[in-house]
Amino acid sequence: MEQKGTLTVKRGLAQMLKGGVIMDVVTPEQAVIAQEAGAVAVMALERIPADIRAMGGVARMSNLELIRSIMDAVTIPVMAKVRIGHIAEAQVLQALGVDFIDESEVLTPADDKFHLAKNDYTTPFVCGARDLGEALRRIAEGAAMIRSKGEAGSGNIVEAVRHMRAIGDGIRELTVAPKEELVARARDLGAPLDLVTYVAEHGKLPVVLFCAGGVSTPADASLMMQLGAEGIFVGSGIFKSNDPKAFSKAIVAATTHYEDPKAVVEASLSLGRDATAMDGIDLRKVPESELLASRGV
């Protein structure tokens, strides 16, 4: 007996990525650089989030020929993004054979009310979340992996920190909540009771939790791992830096040895004197309508 696309094999692939770094790439050549640096997976995109942010307009699923050329260029898993709620884009990426689909607020949402019914697919999905309620709603819909939303393409870690702390605090609160409160807590979180009960009993999400949205330096990666991330997505932080090869290797090393400041020093020193991380944005100066994290809650 052989069963494909089960919850176990979908969540399982995310478990295999733990402790690793997933990098946004826009060409097969960048994908090879990422793999050489030690990335555990790549996210195949037409434009990295910083450029999506700068261009404005409508951001859609990437060109399929580009995604396929990236799948052909590397042996590590390849992820790709679909617009929130875009059933057909998701079906197309599954048929193309990508290993993971990111239902992402970085693209312009296709559905302003509903996310995909992700249990219907063989391909696993990752979704962004700002707090525990959002994370559990996405898991209820079938997400096999959760990432903080952060604020993609901003070069600013503050939103990722806020979201990772909110998810962690939400989990910790449930672990000490008396049983009779769980139904009301589920109502307040807007999440199903079975998932709320799971978190209360296990002190963790039933799927892997990564950080995304604003990581630009080795120290950023170490920070997020210390705040409870099980791995790191780096979007614009690598290919908007002045030395993508050095930054990608250094962020991988700092993620592996995140709890050892000496290793983070070594990773940071490996960048050299001229290293400049990507430019960052002060998010207090960005109008509410331009923030990506508030899409799809």
Partner: peptide
């Protein structure tokens, strides 16, 4: 042989 059974869509539970 790596990824011998295919990509993620071919990942499976087997008795």
């Amino acid at each position: 042989r790596r990824n011998a059974f295919g990509r993620q869509n071919d990942s499976a539970e087997v008795d």
